[in-house]
Amino acid sequence: MNSSLNSVIRQTESAILGKPQQIRFALTCLLAGGHLLIEDMPGVGKTTLSQVLARTLGLQFSRIQFTSDLLPADILGVSVFERDSGQFKFHPGPIFAQMVLADEVNRATPKAQSALLEAMEEHQVTIEGTTRALPSPFFVIATQNPSHQVGTFPLPESQLDRFLMRIRMGYPDEFAERGLLSGIDRREIIAKLTPQMETAELIALQQQVKQIFVSPALLDYVQALLRYTRESSRYTQGLSPRAGLALLSAARAWALIDGRNAVIPEDVQTILPGVVSHRLQGEHQNTLARDLIEAVAIP
């Protein structure tokens, strides 16, 4: 495996205890050029994960706390008239960062949400007629509290589709929690973290993901998965072609992290729950992805 990628993972694991899988999923999203949605209760380390990743990767980090009165301009930026020059000057908003943490994205109104989601999709923003490119790499980690909490605007399905993966943090296990409780303050740890990778190297890795080999046999498998979701009565709607592309690019990134240059069915199976669980609706929402894997034979 790429040595700097390895040290990124090692350093992140030392700061976030007992969540190796989630860390890898976050990196998968980043390397595949997608965005990540973390859905869980407050206080399980969603924010910490993004901060640690930003520090470790040496990315510019900005954080937008979504509130119900947040306006699109608060995210994108605004032009202010400067008396000295007699001109409007654009003050970029917090979206102009390499890694953006959109905290509690479901607290804001749909208007503010869509400003973020459009920027995520286009990798550029258009303000007052001028189109401004966002920095590269551009990676959004949005966090969301479970929508049954009071005062939230849950993201509609069409918006959920913009996130490559959706993961949950979950409670730490006994051992990790002990380490957390007995250790020093997380903020101090984060402050001490040093970048383990150059930005150029990260961009090169993102290019490398696209070169990961996908064989016809594997495409057969992905197509069988897609076909099953469309034909089975278990799902109200099958997976879209975009979901199929998402599966492939996430599987490629996963294979790269795993140190291989070709995708194998296990890669698809590993990333599948994160990629499809927010795109599929059906009866047993929690086991939906697991059932899908078990229902489709590998050709």
Binding site: I264, P265, E266, Q269, V296, I298
Partner: peptide, 8 residues
């Protein structure tokens, strides 16, 4: 198993 990958 039908859905089991070779490595698993």
């Amino acid at each position: 198993l039908p859905h089991e990958g070779p490595r698993d």
